[in-house]
Each structure stands twice: as structure tokens, then as C-alpha cells.
Amino acid sequence: MSAPAAAAASPRALAGQRRRRALRRFARDYARHGAGLVGLAALVAITGIALAAPWFVDPAHLTITGAPGEPYEPPSRAFPLGTDNFGRSVLDLVVWGSRVSLTVGFLATAVSVSLGTLVGVTAGHFGSAGGVFGRITASVLMRVTDWFLVLPTLVLAVALAAVLPRGTATIVVAIGLTVWPPTARLVRAQTLAVEARPFVERARALGGGHAHVMAWHVLPNVMPVVLAQTTLLVATSIIAESTLAFLGMGDPATISWGGVLEAARTAGAVSAGIWWYMVPPGLAIAVVALSFTLCGRALEAVLNPREAR
């Protein structure tokens, strides 16, 4: 498109162009981080496997009665990762477990990121621009955040999971309600920085209310930080899910990586040295958590260059 035509284009088209350019620049910067690319590739592959699992794993083989093999068969051609104490294929269990583990990881992250962003933006906005009442709200919110920040996360999550009814939803709530405080602090700091910029003052001078400023001016500028934090939080949530399942807080009816590890331990696979029952699920957790962490760090480095060395 030539220059005069661009000048004549509507503001909407101009904004679209600018966004596309920014996106291209972002992709180019991200591609410079080798570790981030490796993490991204691993995540795409694992998500693909999780989505495609019903095509090559028969759910009937995952029930105790429909187990296709003998108990504790070592890895063979038929069962590449051996079988568990019921004769189920460990490979099938791990592939199927990825569905619950990833779902819980994403949902818990969604809960905690929404909560953290809401608290952070509200506290940051009213802390800098609110009246007396707003300032009190903001300081109370930050006190609550600090309180949650100090509490041992696992203890709180386990306590929540122990008193609520068993199920995947409980695990999501227990993790989501306990890992949000770092996000809230981060978002608040970013909100304060955004609020100090002239365009926010301009919006306010033109008559923009609190809700308008927060939703249309602060939130879009906070999103990059939130994005990087989200990626890191998925890793945390997946580890937390496996930990809760390992402590026996999970839903016994579903198969997740932590649940498989718990089953391995209670079945005595540890002292019997049945390594093929224990190594794959844990390795899967580690690989997924590491991939998310690598992506998150690459995003952080791209979006916030000052922090990266």
C-alpha cells in the first residue's frame, strides 16, 4: 500500500496495520530465543497428542477390568512403557493423563490470572486515582494479597481440596484461589506505571470514568505482562495439580499424571523398583512444566527487555 492511500485509510484500518506490524516484530523477537522456540514446539506437540488421544487410545483399556496386559509387564513391543499393577499400558495412561493435567493447568491458570488481574488493576487504579474510599479499598486489597502471598500455597490448596467435595472442579478452584497473589502484585505495579502516562490523564480529562479507564486504557497495556505471567503460572498449576493428586486429593475416577504417580506409590512400585510405572508420568510433568517456563521466560525477555540481562 502506498503512503497517500495509507493516510486516507480509516483510523480503524490504520490501527489494524499497526497491530499487525507489532505482531510481526513480536514474532521476530521471540524467534531469537532458542529456548523459547523449543518450549513452544514441545507444547504444540503435547497439546496435539492430548487432543488426538481418543483416536489411538481406547478408553476401555484404561479401566481396571478391561486392562489388556498382565500386571507389571516390563516395556515390550506391545506395551512400549510396560504395564501397571492392573495390566494397563503405562503409555496409554500417560497419554490419557495429559488431558486432565493440561485441562486443570489451563483452567486453574485462567481462574488465578483473572483474579490476580482484577485485584491488581483495581488496587493499582484506585490506589493512584481513587478518592478516600477508593484508596482504602486499594490498600485493603493489597493487604489481602500480601497475606495470601505469605501463606504456604500448598497447605492452603490442600486444605481447600480436603473440605470441598472431590472432583476436578475442586482441584481447579483450590489451585486457582491460591496461586494468584504474585500476578496481582505484578499487575498492580504495571497499572501504576500505566496510570502515570499522559494518555490516561487525557482519557480522564475527556470524561472517562473509572470503569472506562480501567477496561480500555489500563487493561490493554497490562496484558503483555499478564501474558508472560500466565505462561509461567500454567507450569506452576500443572505441578500443583500433580502434587494434590499425589497427596490423595484428586478425583479417583479420572486419570491424571499425579494420580498415576500416587497409584504407583500406593501399589508399592517404588520399593519394588518398577521404574517404568513411575518415570514416564513424572517426566511428562517435568517436560510440560519446563516448556511452559521456557516460553514464559522468552515472553518476559521479549516484552520486558530491561529485565533480561
Partner: peptide
Amino acid sequence: WSVPTFWLGLL
């Protein structure tokens, strides 16, 4: 850091 604590212990 990415490895679950309990799994490392079991290993």
C-alpha cells in the same frame, strides 16, 4: 524447579 518434588524423591 520444573520437576515435582515428590517424583524426584520417588526416583
